[in-house]
């Protein structure tokens, strides 16, 4: 069959969601942010939430998230996205509010905000992109940087005696009674992307059902910061990041019940 015979509107099986506008993303080639933006846009469109969604953009590489998805957005100060989202969600209880944060934003400067927002059980979705590095500012060590990992501020690798241990913040958050769904996913293969999409969909449904905070960590790559090609960084992540940050649901319950793990 000729290619021109296949390329017909009735044979279309996958295309860009109209919620993502035509701006070319500023992310480096192969960045996981693009995939997660796409999943969010697809789900908001599929669940018909475009009119009632409010996103809170962080400081970090995803600071320009509001340029790419055609929904309402609010920019927050560094790390303060959960506090801003708290205000928005309390004033507009019928809206779907989410924050989109990186590991420097959420796990370092915004630790207090995220812990207390989750502990209060604010009715928001938190997307946490964990690439183990401060990507935007030039690849410095983040709290989630792995032991021995070379960054621009730890040129000999992260030394736990000096810098402490990599922080599994999602595990801490799973223990807080306010959270209803805490999971860790990744987007390095097509199967992982599909699984991540199902998790985010479940998390969005929990927020719509007013079950408390839903938290989705996405273990990601930063190929520019890690100084690797996108394909190599996906493999490196699979071999090094995922054993330390194992994928899967950590908590899946309704508000008020403690995690048993």
């Amino acid at each position: 069959m000729e290619i021109q015979e296949i390329i017909k509107p009735e044979n279309l099986v996958y295309q860009k969601t109209p919620l993502l506008n035509d701006d070319v993303m500023h992310y480096c080639p192969g960045c996981s942010h693009g995939v997660v933006h796409k999943l969010l846009a697809e789900l908001i469109e599929e669940m018909d939430l475009q009119e009632k969604t409010i996103g809170v953009a962080p400081v970090g590489c995803s600071v320009f998230a509001y340029n790419y998805i055609d929904i309402d957005w609010q920019e927050a100060a560094h790390g303060r996205a959960p506090a801003v989202a708290t205000g928005i969600a309390r004033i507009n209880p019928d809206n779907f509010v989410f924050t989109y944060q990186g590991d420097g934003d959420l796990a370092s400067i915004g630790t207090a905000e995220i812990m207390h927002a989750c502990n209060r059980g604010e009715n928001i979705l938190v997307i946490f992109i964990n690439n183990g590095i401060y990507g935007m500012t030039g690849g410095q060590m983040a709290p989630t940087t792995l032991e021995g990992m070379v960054t621009s501020t730890t040129p000999n690798g992260r030394n736990v005696d000096l810098n402490g241990y990599p922080m599994k913040i999602t595990n801490l958050i799973a223990q807080l009674p306010g959270t209803s769904y805490v999971t860790r996913q990744s987007v390095h293969t097509a199967a992982a992307v599909r699984k991540c999409k199902r998790s985010i969909k479940k998390a969005i449904q929990n927020v719509l059902d007013k079950k408390g905070t839903s938290f989705v960590e996405v273990v990601s790559t930063c190929n520019s910061g890690w100084k690797m090609t996108p394909v190599d960084s996906n493999k490196w992540m699979e071999e090094n990041m995922i054993p330390y940050y194992p994928l899967g649901d950590m908590k899946d319950t309704i508000k008020g019940e403690h995690s048993d793990r």
Partner: peptide, 23 residues
Amino acid sequence: IGCINCGVVCPDTCITVYRAKAS
């Protein structure tokens, strides 16, 4: 085979996939 794996993993959403039954 039109499995759409390429479109699913594309970070810049620049891939469109078409699929038809083989004749």
